[in-house]
């Protein structure tokens, strides 16, 4: 089980930047300066990306800790 937790840590490390890049790409696709719905306005996206950046970094750090075996004895 500890090995699985460590290997998956690598996946969580990758997931952080992947999610963030995907979010920025989706935002760029949807933002329309003349848009009237929430998903086409820039402000919600700026807020969401601002708040998700530390969360994605957190997921990467979580993965790093898992990779290094910091959670091995939690079971």
């Amino acid at each position: 089980m500890d090995n699985l937790k460590r290997y998956l840590g690598f996946l969580w490390m990758l997931a952080g930047p992947v999610i963030l890049i995907a979010l920025i790409a989706i935002a760029a696709k949807n933002i329309d300066i003349n848009g009237t719905t929430d998903i086409s306005k820039p402000i919600p996206w700026i807020i969401i990306i601002s708040i998700f950046t530390p969360v994605a970094i957190g997921l990467t750090i979580f993965g790093w800790y898992a990779w290094k075996g910091e959670y091995d004895k939690e079971q």
Binding site: D38, K41, I43, P44, I47, I48, S50, I51
Partner: peptide, 17 residues
């Protein structure tokens, strides 16, 4: 309209944490 968007999104996403 801009303030409305801020009220909706900022209150939950930024200010709560």
């Amino acid at each position: 309209a801009l303030l409305s968007t801020l009220a909706t999104f900022a209150a939950g996403f930024i200010v709560r944490p």
